[in-house]
Amino acid sequence: MKYPQNLSQLMPGQHARVTHIDTVGAMRRRLMDLGLTLDTEIMCLGRSPFGDPSAYLIRGAVIAIRAKDSQNIIIETE
């Protein structure tokens, strides 16, 4: 089985840890404001009916992120 490399590949129910955020500017700021920084534990909760965006559990809150943005968040699964 291939391990997910970035957040958009994380399947619903899977956990991961953020290792790198490969985006700049406003989106990077927004993600960090929401508590998504390096080493943050993250879990994919589900996808919307068309498969995009997906919902993630980040520090106790449920946040929806589009695949376009989440593919820039590099993760590591245990």
Binding site: A26, L31, A61, I63, A64, I65, R66
Partner: peptide, 11 residues
């Protein structure tokens, strides 16, 4: 182009 999008889904 569409900008970044984050949306909180409250309980």
């Amino acid at each position: 182009i569409p900008s970044a999008f984050t949306l909180e889904l409250p309980p």
